[in-house]
Amino acid sequence: MAKTNHQKEKLLVLLEILRTESDETHPLVVPRLIEKLQARGIAAERKSIYDDLDTLRRKGYDIVLHRGKGYYLGEREFQLAELKLLVDAVQSSRFITAKKSNELIEKLERQTSIYGAQTLQRQVFVAGRVKSMNESVYYNIDAIHKAIGENRQITFRYFDYDQNLKKVFRHNGKRYRVSPYALLRSDENYYLTAYDSRAEQIKHYRVDKMVEISVTDRRRDGAEAYQSFDLGEYARIHFGMFKGEEREVLLRCDNRFSHVIVDRFGESVHMVPEDDSHFTASVRVAVSPQFYGWVFGLGGGVTILSPTDVAQGMKDQLELVLRNYTVIM
């Protein structure tokens, strides 16, 4: 049989056909493989196909023969169940924009057959979810990892959105300079924890609100401060990653909220039975409106006992909310 200009690509094309057009439920017989090669301008004979399949096996590819039905590529870098988990993670990640989510899902679909990709597509529901509006967040994370790996400081600008969804830069648009140490995911957002040399303390910043990140030539500061820094504890203390004064707070809780306390503060939280229906929990929190909102959200099942000023702060928050609704009524 005359050879075409594409013959040198034959083995690679055959592998691509098996990767994209075959799986356990869609094996391909040899005549069908020959047809698909010919459609791509590559001549092939039955015997050469068998030789090529053996070559792929020797190179470590899991070429499986389903007797009477044909061949398919079995073990892959990602199994379909793993791809479904990755797709779900991309979909549910609030910090990834809808556009970037769709791009990543399309890349994941190329890791399986066209038939497997169809099952992935059936579970794709990116549209309508609350997603970040900052397309650069994907690259921000990469830049931060680069700076951490090279032990370098970074500079960036930091913004909020106003009521018209326009960016309003903090510090009048001046650039921040910090020493990055870790990325933390909390409440569906990514945060950078970094050492601020001017303030001489560790702070956090929402990655999707950072723009124009630049890796500098300066080496990082704050190594000693970060050695004693517990990232997990920091995340537990700061509700919604909002800042506030860190305090030891005593809570009185209904027994039915024991799992809520453990989920929020971890298994090391100090809990003491008070009576048959209640227990007290001593926790360390950053006192903020978000902390008060968490307590309120438990519907009276959790009460702040001490310190007195923190309990009073809860009362003040409730009265403020009540006044707002009194005006409406």
Rank of each mutant, 00 (worst) to 15 (best):
T216Q: 11
R218Y: 13
R218V: 00
R219H: 05
R220P: 04
D221A: 12
D221M: 09
G222C: 12
A223N: 04
A225T: 03
A225G: 00
Q227D: 01
S228H: 14
F229K: 02
L231W: 02
Y234S: 08
Y234T: 05
A235F: 03
H238E: 11
H238R: 13
F239E: 03
F239G: 04
G240M: 13
G244C: 08
G244I: 04
E246M: 11
V249T: 06
L250R: 02
C253S: 09
F257P: 01
S258G: 09
S258C: 09
H259M: 14
V260Y: 07
V260M: 06
V260D: 09
V260F: 04
V262D: 08
D263T: 06
R264D: 01
S268L: 15
V269Y: 01
H270V: 15
P273H: 05
D275C: 09
D275W: 06
D275F: 07
D275V: 07
D276H: 07
S277P: 00
H278N: 05
H278V: 13
H278Y: 13
H278C: 07
F279A: 01
T280R: 08
S282A: 11
S282D: 08
R284V: 13
A286C: 10
A286V: 08
S288M: 09
Q290G: 04
F291H: 06
F291W: 10
F291P: 01
F291A: 06
Y292H: 14
